[in-house]
Write a protein that binds this DNA or RNA. Structure first.
Lengths: 136, 136
DNA sequence: CACCTTTAGGACCTGTTTTGTCTTTTATAA
DNA sequence: TTATAAAAGACAAAACAGGTCCTAAAGGTG
């Protein structure tokens, strides 16, 4: 349960790689893919997504590539994870719209809410800058 | 991300139903399935699993059925969830055995460990007895 | 302009997991 | 010995994961 998919794992690896580049330097998707050992076309999709959300900037043509859309210190792990995995929702019933019929007479929902907010809190407290720092 | 499957949802509904029975009373799988609006054969598998783990006791033949294997106050939500969903592991890399290559130079792992222990802590702190209490 | 580079976008594909159903077997009580 | 109930296993549709491949579009460069 609660497992990160490969996509999520790849997304994190990729953006950490970007964060480690010297500021202003552009990285090619082929380069990132090779360095992080992720299938290139798959990683490309992930980064397209990042670009749409403004997490990274993309540039086409010769000399193009990707760079962070903001300082790594202002990108949280939560943003990265949710960008590719969708919102952190431990139970469908927590989603808006047609709540489940059991909502009223069910005490489990508050528990899932707690799980949700705790996980969000943790992931929110971690920035890509921290993750990109070299471990000695 | 982090979503409980239907199986997990069904499992919780089912065991809560059992916990609400008057002590010593047996409940048929057909009865539980109908009350909780879960496909009967699917719920049967879930309860077979519960029985193996001792969460419930099962009895065959006339007058048979299911009852809790322990007082509801001594069954945690964690046990129920893990019984059907497997261990709570936010990232494959947290699993034993062949750790991922990136383990050494990756700062993300401690974060997943924190997520894991927080979620486990929350689910562990909730008993089926609490969940089964009637909400007014 | 023509051409090369690089990302964007869409179609497609394969294997696994989810979410079941159906049938047969085994245990038990009356 | 028969009716009742759970146990067990085989099967299957649908959704999802984890990709691949091909074409389009945008941006430099000679």
């Amino acid at each position: 349960m609660m497992e990160l998919t490969r996509k999520g794992e790849y997304a994190i690896r990729g953006i950490i790689y970007l964060a480690r580049q010297t500021p202003g330097k552009m990285a090619l998707i082929s380069e990132i893919a090779e360095a992080t050992e992720v299938p290139q076309t798959f990683l490309a999709k992930i980064f397209q997504n990042f670009a749409k959300l403004g997490l990274v900037n993309s540039y086409r043509g010769t000399g193009g590539g990707f760079m962070l859309g903001r300082p790594a210190s202002r990108i949280t792990l939560r943003e990265v994870v949710e960008a590719v995995e969708g919102p952190i929702i431990p139970n469908r019933c927590l989603m808006g719209g047609s709540a489940c019929d059991f909502d009223s007479h069910c005490n489990v929902h508050p528990v899932w809410r707690r799980v949700q907010s705790e996980v969000v809190r943790i992931l929110e407290s971690v920035t890509i800058e921290e993750l990109a720092r070299e471990t000695k």
